[in-house]
């Protein structure tokens, strides 16, 4: 039995990201890191796999830069890593992504639970997660803050799910796709031995032919990246005693019509 988790490499959160003259997104020489939200999914996969006596497998769909995130996952203690890549995936949309992701899960064969982070800090369209669940035809449980219990034999799962208005306890059947929030655990740091092992690991790369799928035509695409419009750089320092500052600020805010 396997628990799978999807991840990707994203630019370090402190990186200055911009669009260069050729229209490409760049982040200079800033490092890429494992998507911060995925650390919680990876930790949960490691823990749940250990509890169940199964294996944790991590998958990235993407170009070689995503090996970074896979190596980090291995260093944390995930058992296996795979990368899915094919030229046909370049610039493909969420539907294509989900088709490849579902095929990779089928390829692993014995997966009962797929974990995702809340979203990725770069592309930021959690649509991948839900689309993958639908393509698999599995139960989708999103915004999970706690896996209360899993019974792999009975194929049931019980979770706590956070809504805008509160918290639900939900039971559902396995196999399932679960996206997790940061409340779920405290991700471990990679150990020294883990890092050494991960450095030496070779990561199998699956093409679409290996997965036996063809992609649907991408009906959504990015036509251009652009930099943010220039910020309003007007700045006014408001000084004086706290009472004077307060009075001046209220005057200004009323002038700006934001109150």
């Amino acid at each position: 039995m396997r628990i799978a988790v999807f991840t990707r490499s994203t630019p370090d959160t402190a990186a200055k990201v911009e669009v260069d003259a050729s229209g490409k997104v760049t982040w200079g020489d800033a490092a890429t890191v494992v998507n911060p939200w995925d650390e919680y999914a990876l930790e949960e996969a490691i823990v749940q796999a250990k509890n169940a006596g199964g294996k944790a497998a991590v998958i990235a769909i993407g170009a070689p830069m995503h090996d970074e995130a896979l190596k980090h996952s291995l260093a944390m203690g995930v058992d296996e890593a795979y990368r899915v890549w094919d030229d046909a995936l370049e610039g493909a949309d969420g539907l294509a992504y989900a088709t490849a992701a579902a095929a990779a899960i089928k390829q692993l064969g014995d997966v009962e639970l797929v974990l995702f982070g809340r979203d990725s800090v770069d592309v930021g369209t959690d649509q991948h997660i839900y689309a993958t669940a639908r393509k698999l035809g599995w139960t989708m449980l999103s915004y999970v803050s706690k896996i209360v219990s899993i019974d792999f034999a009975a194929k049931t799962i019980k979770v706590e799910k956070v809504l805008e208005q509160g918290k639900q306890v939900i039971t559902a059947s396995l196999p399932a796709v679960v996206s997790v929030l940061k409340d779920i655990n405290e991700p471990r740091y990679p150990s020294f031995i883990g890092i050494r092992k991960a450095q030496k690991a070779t990561i199998p790369v699956w093409g679409l032919a290996d997965l036996g799928v063809t992609l649907p035509a991408s009906a959504a695409r990015v036509t251009a990246f652009k930099n943010l419009p220039p910020r309003d750089t007007r700045f006014e320092l408001i000084s004086g005693t706290p009472e004077e500052q307060a009075k001046q600020l209220v005057d200004k805010l009323l002038e700006e019509k934001v109150l």
Binding site: D93, G94, L95, A98, G124, T125, D126, Q127, I129, Y130, A131, A133, R134, K135, M140, S142, Y143, L163, E164, P216, S218, A219, A220
Partner: peptide, 23 residues
């Protein structure tokens, strides 16, 4: 694009093989 809006529309877009523009 609330949490529910996101998952509902993305799921149905996948069911119907439709394009999706999020958020």
């Amino acid at each position: 694009a609330s949490s529910r809006g996101r998952e509902l529309l993305a799921s149905s877009a996948a069911d119907t093989d439709s394009a999706m523009l999020s958020d």
